[in-house]
Simulated scan of single mutants.
Amino acid sequence: MPIDATRAYDDSNIFARILRGEISAKRVYEDEFALAFHDIAPQAPVHILVIPKRAYVSWDDFSSRASDGEIAGFVRAVGHVAREHGLVEPGYRLLANVGGHGGQEVPHLHVHLFGGQPLGPMLSR
């Protein structure tokens, strides 16, 4: 069910629990700013989620409260994961759902990284 991206952070969400080690995930990258792991219900041959390590609900929350170092570190982590998985060439898609209209289901900022095949149009027409 989509969430309201303006609501307070819920530290019982699944990504917060993964960060605390309460739930396992197939991790592919981790540094001081971000954690990347395989999606449990992949929508493409490569479907990796990248999340910031601190508690941010959405892009708006992250861009207004995170330090410059956190923002740069998160963006670099996304790029690193794409390179390490051979996605830069032939290409990949990044997707961040934000709020109810955007279809966000987990109230922790996350980026979906899709690749491994031609992905088709962004939205159905």
Rank of each mutant, 00 (worst) to 15 (best):
T6D: 08
T6C: 01
T6P: 01
R7H: 05
A8Y: 08
Y9F: 15
Y9R: 07
D10E: 14
D11H: 14
S12P: 01
N13C: 12
G21T: 11
G21M: 10
G21A: 10
S24K: 15
S24D: 15
K26Q: 15
V28N: 12
E30Y: 04
E30W: 05
D31C: 14
E32W: 02
F33D: 01
A34C: 06
L35P: 01
A36L: 05
A36N: 05
I40C: 07
A41H: 12
A41C: 04
Q43P: 13
Q43G: 15
A44P: 06
V46E: 05
V46A: 06
H47V: 01
I48P: 07
I48G: 06
P52L: 10
P52Q: 09
K53N: 10
K53W: 01
R54I: 03
A55L: 01
Y56F: 15
Y56N: 09
S58D: 06
W59G: 05
W59L: 15
D60R: 08
D60N: 05
F62C: 10
S63F: 05
S63T: 07
S63A: 12
A66E: 07
S67P: 05
D68N: 10
E70M: 14
E70K: 13
I71L: 12
A72Y: 02
A72I: 05
A72S: 11
G73D: 04
F74E: 00
V75P: 00
R76L: 05
A77Y: 00
A77D: 00
H80L: 04
H80V: 11
A82Y: 10
R83F: 02
H85Q: 10
H85K: 05
P90H: 10
G91P: 06
L94E: 05
L95G: 03
A96S: 09
A96T: 13
N97P: 04
N97A: 07
N97Y: 04
V98N: 14
V98R: 06
G100Y: 09
H101V: 07
G102Y: 14
G103S: 02
V106P: 01
V106Q: 02
H110K: 09
V111P: 03
L113M: 08
F114L: 15
Q117L: 09
P121G: 04
M122G: 02
S124I: 04
R125F: 03
